[in-house]
Nucleic acid binder design. Structure first.
Lengths: 233, 233
DNA sequence: CTGGATCCTCAACGATACTG
DNA sequence: CAGTATCGTTGAGGATCCAG
């Protein structure tokens, strides 16, 4: 069958199976692709934002991946327009549809993750994505009107509870009701392996502001980690 | 080897981020790993089963992946025992927990898949996995007691509706009520883009047995493909 | 400064042969 | 059957360079 070069595919490798998972693997199995998609899922980014948000990615690899993702229809390139002439990359609807799969992978990966390995860092996109997964589609009481500022390392994101919904976005909050400063142990809190009281008393988190608001933060932002075992018999 | 000696890399490459998705990507981003896990999720397999079920995989790659997956705790190796001295690989509970993520990726990949590319084949594991995803956790009426035999190419799987649940397994069925023979268009049927009547009249499927049972097959085995668009504003 | 392209090196992957 | 061994190929990593 490999009679040398009838079809020479450009960069992607194929598995030769007519299978949804195989097709997905051909795209997201490329090195760095999942993390690029995660960064773009948080908010649209420029090329240089991606290089700084993905420390260690070679510039040629990033360029290749963006081109491939554009060809696959997952990412759209917004050409320079008007005053700001920066190229902006954003997910297309087809790219957004990967959301549930990325969330499921995040949950699974977080389930096997306790302490950071040496040299591992937290990025704005990673903590934003993690908190969004933890918030899920959860509904909260309508009268909760709270702004949290969350600091992990030198990264800052904010969590808003408004009109019954939760939103998580990168960057500083205006007039936070409670500032939460934590280290990697925030993962244990989200995983439900560390309760709010213990987190405070052990110093895993440091609070500044209305500390009574921490309980609902810890109770609401939870990774819904359900083992989901296939019944085989 | 690495005389620079800052960090030791065994085989896996790391992204250097304390992030669930990054951890997941380090494992399932390896070439062939997702398909190996899919095959094992269908049922435990021997080494040679995997080589035949994954046409094109280099034997050394398969050996490496199995070793890595064993080290990561996703796959367990059952050593030769008693009469049958074959090594059997199976998913561990931790490996099974990847199920929802694999399903989500399958759905997404299937959503962008219409016709097979040249040379793409259907394997027993791929069609079994696809039908299981299509069945989901769906409940059917208790009084449905039906056995389907599904043929796609030279692959045969069977679908049982019993006691309100649906099970899909590889291989031949005993006393099938309906034998369904189809080509790749079965994907359109599962995706809901081809209704039962049209599938029959256009010859996309060929039925043998109680044809009245085909309607419930087409209605029940559906890929629950929900776009799930993130509200960004 | 942004947004890449180019060049080189080496580890990972792929194909085939071979072995306990 | 269940893998190693060997060797060629390819893609990723890293540094630098270049055009707008």
């Amino acid at each position: 069958m490999q009679s040398s070069g009838i079809v020479k595919y450009m960069t992607n490798q194929h598995y030769g199976q007519f299978c949804g998972l195989a097709r997905a693997a051909e795209i997201i199995g490329q090195r760095w692709t999942l993390l690029i998609l995660r960064d773009l899922s948080v908010w649209p980014r420029r090329y240089s934002d991606l290089t700084t948000g993905l420390p260690g990615i070679p510039t040629n690899t990033l360029a290749s991946r963006l081109k491939e993702l554009e060809d696959e229809g997952l990412v759209a390139r917004t050409l320079p327009s008007g005053a700001d002439r920066s190229v902006v990359y954003a997910l297309t609807p087809r790219g957004e549809e990967l959301g549930p799969a990325l969330d499921a992978l995040s949950r699974w990966g977080a389930g096997g993750m306790r302490m950071p390995r040496e040299g591992e860092i937290v990025t704005t996109a990673s903590i934003t994505a993690a908190l969004r997964v933890a918030a899920g589609e959860r509904i909260v009481p309508q009268d909760w009107n709270t702004t949290y500022s969350v600091h992990v390392g030198d990264v800052e994101v904010h969590v808003l509870m408004r009109d019954g919904t939760i939103t998580v976005d990168p960057g500083a909050a205006e007039n936070a009701d409670l500032i939460i400063t934590a280290g990697p142990q925030i993962r244990d809190l989200l995983a439900g392996e560390l309760d709010a009281q213990t987190a405070i008393t052990t110093g895993a988190v440091h609070l500044e502001g209305d500390e009574s608001l921490f309980g609902r933060f810890a109770d609401t932002l939870r990774v819904p980690y359900s083992p989901h075992v296939h019944a085989t018999s």
